[in-house]
Each structure stands twice: as structure tokens, then as C-alpha cells.
Design a protein around this nucleic acid. Structure first.
Lengths: 129, 129
DNA sequence: CTAGGTGCAAAGCGTTTGCTCGGGG
DNA sequence: CCCCGAGCAAACGCTTTGCACCTAG
């Protein structure tokens, strides 16, 4: 892959962020140091970086995709209060695939999981929710 | 909710199907007995039925939403070979929420999970995949 | 009679793509 | 020098919405 200043900036923006940004958020941020960049370029590069195994795309239910610089297998939770997206480390899901294979013959190759709920901050802010 | 012939037909179409149809597939099917129906009406009614707790919407990663007449909690797997979407009954996921609450303080209220892989039929058809 | 539903078409939104120009190697 | 990438704008696919007419209750 040929180097470009824009891709470099996009890659850095996602890696440095811990908010699992959307393409649009990356665009906003990258424009600071690169005012001429276009949204199309951001999408193109995000997809290239995903294809190249440098980033992960998170398909959010009912919302635009988000991007993640963490490449180890994990899942995500979205807070219905503030919209924050946080990581879930792999817990008891490891045996799931073999359990499914045994029971259904379906050989799982990827998980797309997003949990929805209320984060600690929002629970503290509004205990009734 | 006021009765309408169209909503009736849409509801029946989703309940009778075991293929987790998209809005468009429902549209195609309902047009047989209701040629004047519009796609907008199909979307409107599907959403009303989901809001009313009569159907579930399945957010497919990287693809249009699908609808499901099964209302008990379960997940879905999509075959990367043939695109078939099948049900996964709840397995060892039940303790996941409390595990997450303990470790992160995030109170889970909903799961959005789609597993990707190869179904038994496709595995038989093309053993190398 | 009237609130809510339909059909139609246009708009919305996130994302992709065709084209021409520019810059990396 | 050549080709991939950038910038721009138009197109795209799925979904929603505004509007005028219709229909269940």
C-alpha cells in the first residue's frame, strides 16, 4: 500500500481514539490538520485499513459503522443513555462456537455482537433508569 | 392499533416465513394478494409491529434489517455461503449480563448478536470452504 | 364524522463510485 | 514517468416522511 499523508492521519486518529469513532467523527478530527480532505477519502482509507487488517469495522445496530484500532477479538456495548461505546473483553463466549457446531452443524467464523444497556456513569447520574 | 388489511397481510407474511425476511422480501410476497401496496406501507407497518411487540427487527451487520416473528430471546447466524439466516437458541449466554455487570458496571438490557459462518448444507456442498 | 392508514414520490442518511488531477516511488 | 491516491460530486441502497386521499370504528 502506497503511503499517503491522509491515510496516516486517519489511521492515527482511530488508533488514538478510545471512542470507536464513526467515519464522520474521523473526518471531523482529521480535518484539523488536513483541511482539504474529503469524506470520500476517509471512507476509502478506513475500508482499506480494515481490509489490510489494521483496523476493525464495528457494525452498529441501527446506526452507522464505527471503527476500532484494537485488533484482538472483543465485543462492544453501547450505552442507551449517553451513546458511549465501550469494549467487552471476551468472557464465556469461547465455547459458544463449538457448542453451536455440535448442535446445529453451523461452523462459526465471526461474531457480530453489540450489547445495549446503561453504563456506570449514566446509572449514577440517573439511578432510576 | 386500527385494523388494516395491509398490516394483517404483512404480519402473516413474517410469521409464516422462516427465512427472516427483509422489508423488500415481505413487500414482494404481500404484493401477490395486494398488488397496490407500497414499500413505504410495508416499512411503516413492520416498524409499528415491532414497536407493538409483535415482531422483532434483526439488525444485520453490513446489510438491511430483517424481521422475525419469533418473540422469545434468541440470536441469529448468517451463512456466508448461501446467505441463509437461521436461529440460534440461547446457549451459555445467560450469565453474560451479570458477569459484565460485575466486571464493568454496565447494565445490559439487550443483545444484538449475529454469528457468521458456514451452514451444514454449504459445508456438505463444498467441503473445502 | 374523524383519527389513523394508504399510496406515491421525494427526501434523508450513510456509504460508494466515476472522473480528473496530484504526488509517491 | 507511471500508477495509486486525493478531492469533488453524483449516485446508490435502504429507510423514512410529507401530502392528499381513503377507510375502519
Amino acid at each position: 500500500m502506497k503511503y499517503s499523508r491522509q491515510r496516516e492521519a486517519i489511521y492515527r486518529a482511530v488508533r488514538q481514539s478510545c471512542s470507536h469513532p464513526t467515519a464522520d467523527t474521523v473526518y471531523e478530527q482529521v480535518r484539523d490538520e488536513n483541511p482539504q480532505i474529503s469524506l470520500g477519502t476517509v471512507y476509502r482509507n478506513l475500508n482499506q485499513l480494515v481490509d489490510g487488517g489494521m483496523l476493525t469495522k464495528i457494525a452498529m445496530p441501527y446506526d452507522g459503522d464505527r471503527f476500532d484500532g484494537r485488533m484482538d477479538e472483543h465485543y462492544h456495548m453501547i450505552c442507551t443513555g449517553c451513546g458511549k461505546v465501550v469494549d467487552v473483553n471476551l468472557l464465556s463466549l469461547s465455547q459458544l462456537d463449538s457448542e453451536i457446531l455440535q448442535k446445529t452443524g453451523f461452523r462459526v467464523s465471526a461474531h457480530h455482537m453489540v450489547l445495549e444497556g446503561t453504563c456506570e456513569d449514566c446509572a449514577a447520574r440517573k439511578p432510576s433508569a
